[in-house]
Design a protein around this nucleic acid. Structure first.
Lengths: 161, 161
DNA sequence: CCCTACTAGTTTGTGTACAATTGTATTGTA
DNA sequence: TACAATACAATTGTACACAAACTAGTAGGG
């Protein structure tokens, strides 16, 4: 008889909160990144490259938790924009090394205000958000580990632990 | 000279934590939902329909924070699977009402264990996750409000507040 | 009643995401 | 050296996600 049973379960799910907040984040970035000509995933890739040195596609994928199927077309677009250069590593032709062009490097300056504007839109000092960030990363790790454990168990007949 | 300046900024960003955790969530759901023949967004739509009554596309979009451009093809797939029925509302032909088929209703039973399995994979009792969920929803609202305020300001020459 | 504005949904085009497959290069091992 | 196993990236096919343009239906003011 209590109304609790009839109450929406959707809004009570953490996963949906992550899902819908991600969309809101994307929409918040969109007008800021539009000026730079970037999408949010493209911006993330540029963030990694701005941090330093040249990187392989695999290394970028490990940082962003994305595979080459997603990154290859994304990186081709960045290359077409003249922001990066893609070239097979002469030392290991399997790898593709990514380097910033001058245009790509100079875009870093234009992107400086972005994090601050997003933080402002979130409406709370970064300290308060640290706990959320930390917990999200713990969840991410837990979910990915559970997945990896299951895959390992499926491949070998040896049960995990 | 401090190493802090050289430290990766990507991992310090809450937005990236949301972004990458969302992907992990998606991957965690995938093997569970595969048995039901659903994707995660399709599952969310079914959750709303399972909650009760028939719903219009617009109402569903408000619940899921998705627009009709995303929902129309998704709902067509659910209809093709025989899970839902889509029909124009005779009272207002602009609206499309969504109703569950018997097959769609019976799928609810098969989906019962899913939330529990996901919660288990997250590796912490739901109480600990409530704070995160709450804060994410606050962030989502703040970002969407900021966006709405900007749109309103752009449309009228009257400055907001 | 007519005409305009508005609303709901569909379509189109671009850009992620990812599983699965393919192609090429490297490594390990007999 | 041969040659199987592995590793890295690209390709293919499916499914979101959203802006913008489009279609059709409704409501409101004259």
């Amino acid at each position: 008889m209590s109304e609790a049973a009839a109450k929406p379960r959707l809004e009570q799910q953490l996963c949906f909160a992550i899902y819908s907040t991600m969309h809101a984040v994307n929409k918040a970035y969109q007008p800021l990144l539009e000026k730079l000509g970037l999408t949010y995933p493209q911006y993330l890739a540029m963030l990694v490259l701005w941090e330093g040195g040249d990187v392989t596609v695999k290394q970028l994928g490990e940082r962003l938790f994305l595979d080459s199927g997603t990154l290859t077309p994304l990186l081709k677009r960045l290359e077409a924009m003249g922001l990066i250069h893609r070239a097979r590593d002469p030392k290991d032709e399997r790898r593709v090394r990514l380097t910033l062009t001058e245009k790509g490097k100079s875009l870093h300056r234009d992107a400086q205000p972005v994090p601050g504007q997003i933080a402002a839109a979130m409406g709370r000092p970064p300290e308060d958000l640290k706990a959320v960030r930390k917990e999200l990363r713990r969840i991410r790790t837990a979910l990915l580990d559970a997945r990896a454990a299951k895959e390992a168990a499926a491949e070998s007949s040896i049960p995990p632990v």
